[in-house]
Design a protein around this nucleic acid. Structure first.
Lengths: 173, 173
DNA sequence: TCCATATTGACATTATAATGCCAAATTGTT
DNA sequence: AACAATTTGGCATTATAATGTCAATATGGA
């Protein structure tokens, strides 16, 4: 990175980040091709997974938060999946508009087909790597994720300083 | 991932990939905010970096290949950077149309400002992580990248089987 | 030299993502 | 009960990315 004052650790983290950018994009296009035969994309697959793996069925906005994506994009993808019969909406006892999203049989089949295509591939992908180093990498990436989530949350909080209850009370006087 | 037949290693790699997706997106928005004051984005920054860090000046298509992005998108970004005076084109002795892309003073200043803003931040980001585990993570991600590049290249080669010289000779008869 | 192939920038089109705004609905506070 | 704040889906707009096509140019063989 041509940073004169970079410590080895910071330099190594920069290398990691740059490699992550490439690996991320490659993984997405790899996933796109892998699940294309089932009418899926990486993005659709991710959303189906979020639905399948959640304890209980959720409205769109919750899914978006869970996968860390924009609510509107998830809504668009969910609507597409609905048009194609992969998911359906169920009434939400707690909210009249926020319907619950569940998989149809067709959706479940597509998701399972994706998983079945993925499993042998990811096994091959892991060849030459030890369980330990994969887990170490996971821990590093998880730490990175936590740090960044913290920073971004902090920025958002700084932009619109939330009132505490005494401040709100003061406004009313 | 709810994969009945997954080995621990494959499962760990899946966890890593899912965490990578999140960390990647967070890093990009974090980078966007970091360099926005200098008229940059993560994508622009990456391209300026590719120009700065390359041994010799290159045309757009080469830059695109180096950063693993679409030629057309890099072209668009480069054109934007040109309009804003961050880069300029120089004649290419080896190609009449493929001009060489170089940074202007303004571009260099923006890039340096980005680096200066980035350096202390990445140092903070690395806190709590050891040099060893960062390097291990880097190696894992680099392996992942190589594997995926290999797979994708293989698929492309399979789509349009290239002729060898004898096949070409045979066609002519 | 001649010719097939590959590269490159330009242009067009489509797909996807990001952002802002709105009204309906819900939640929490007082 | 009343009211502010938040959440949610819908809609519109813009920004960015991806894909395809084309002509100009360059490259490598024969």
């Amino acid at each position: 990175m041509s940073m004169a004052d970079a410590t080895p650790k910071a330099e190594a983290l920069t290398d990691l980040i740059l490699t992550m950018f490439r690996a991320n994009n490659l993984t997405l296009t790899w996933g796109d091709r892998l699940v294309a035969p089932f009418g899926l994309t990486s993005a659709r697959w991710q959303i189906l997974g979020a639905i399948v793996l959640s304890e209980r069925s959720q409205p769109v906005a919750w899914i978006a938060r869970n996968v860390g994506a924009n609510r509107q994009n998830v809504q668009r993808i969910v609507n597409d999946l609905h048009k194609e019969g992969l998911i359906e909406f169920q009434p939400n006892p707690h909210h009249r508009r926020a319907h619950l999203v569940v998989l149809t049989d067709k959706g479940r089949q597509a998701y399972e087909a994706a998983i079945n295509a993925y499993n042998p591939k990811v096994y091959t992908l892991a060849e030459g790597l030890s369980l330990d180093e994969i887990r170490t990498a996971h821990r590093v990436m998880a730490t990175l994720r936590e740090r960044l989530e913290g920073e971004i949350d902090a920025e958002k909080a700084a932009q619109t300083p939330p009132m505490n209850s005494s401040e709100r009370a003061g406004l009313r006087s």
